[in-house]
Design a protein around this nucleic acid. Structure first.
Lengths: 210, 210
DNA sequence: GAACGTCGGGACGCAACCGTACCGTCGTTG
DNA sequence: CAACGACGGTACGGTTGCGTCCCGACGTTC
């Protein structure tokens, strides 16, 4: 046995990036069109104009493929401008979310994967992690700044705050699927600010009589 | 040819209700476990302990089956108590929604079907109709009453109001999938009331500088 | 109590997809 | 310029599900 040095792969023996990109794009299209449940490697290959082998060489399975794409997208940060006021920050966040959800692909894929996450532990982990990061970022940045400025009480419940912030836009665009005009954003932001102020005051008396 | 009267089907020649129920239950279980995309008649039959034929005799196809179940569930009304105040009404609505979404089946099936609706026109029609009804009911009942009481301005945007009301609970329970403690409901309701008051004031000046 | 007629069940042909094995191709490296 | 070695593509067996057809079973009605 000779312990000879392996030559580094080169020439035609190297993954072609164009093909990898084609596969990624095809996956997004398929994901939007048929959802994760019915996503088939064959269809992806067909759409990408590529052989199945090309896919299996890059990812071990369908799950692997999707997980990889999720982490690629979900890893992005959330670089929000600091406008100097909770209201301004909120408007920007809402605009960013609305713009993202306006894309056909995103508006179909995100709800689909979130639903899938409820039953697939692997996807759930990746996705919930990303989601938690996102929510924590929103909480830390938006709420944190507002607290520093004195706009909100320091013991604001971040989770509850995030629900109030993110819920309405998501409902409107991903569930109700009605367009959110950019002109509506300021009003929604103002409403949310009011909600956050009240929510940060702590528990409210007002039990419902049953 | 004798034009004899047909005897009405009777005896063993009649659909057995118990089997229909078994199928319905099995569909819900399967829908929750694998989603609409991967829902298979065979699996439903297996789980229900029934033959495929039994299913095809009742519904023409998978789509038919699901559509039928959707309309059965979605047809329900929303009989909200009138507590005399927007806050009280809101608390009840939130409790009702939270309770519904706490059920494992509902929490899995609803987001799944909503995602599916985005790509399947038939489901979309049935589901969006139900959703619109629901939203209109919320708008008409909750907002309408509040307007009558003078708690909100008459020209409140109902769609925007519904987003503010329904979005946060849905996000918390169906997307973020964190439990919503009953004790949190009053605070959330109070926050939403504040948001609605502000939102009903009409457009807000406060464009974001970019 | 016999005839009726739909019932549920099993089997079938067809189609789609999974994941793998093999084969000729091709660009770089030494 | 020749040898290397991973590349992309085709072909394959196995599995699963769809929707249909035919069969014996069975309870009511006349």
């Amino acid at each position: 046995m000779t312990t000879e040095k392996r030559r580094a792969p080169a020439g035609a023996a190297v993954l072609r990036g164009e093909i990898t990109s084609a596969i990624r794009a095809a996956v997004l299209q398929e994901l939007a069109q048929v959802g994760y449940g019915r996503l088939s490697i064959e269809a992806v290959a067909r759409r990408a104009g590529v052989s199945k082998t090309a896919i299996y060489r890059r990812w071990r399975s369908k799950l692997d493929l999707v997980l990889d794409m999720v982490s690629a997208v979900a890893g992005r940060n959330l670089p929000l401008l600091d406008t100097g006021s909770l209201l301004g920050d909120l408007e920007i966040l809402l605009h960013v979310m609305a713009r993202a959800l306006r894309h056909r692909l995103a508006a179909q894929i995100i709800p689909d994967l979130l639903a899938e996450a409820a039953r697939n532990p692997q996807i759930a982990e990746k996705l919930q992690t990303a989601l938690d990061d996102y929510q924590q970022a929103v909480g830390r940045i938006l709420i944190g700044r507002a607290v520093e400025r004195g706009e909100l009480s320091p013991d604001t419940d971040r989770r509850a705050a995030v629900d109030l912030i993110v819920g309405p836009v998501y409902w409107r665009m991903a569930i109700s699927r009605a367009p959110l005009e950019p002109t509506e954003v300021p009003r929604m932001a103002a409403a949310i600010v009011a909600a956050l102020r009240v929510a940060s005051l702590g528990p409210v008396r007002g039990e419902v009589e049953v």
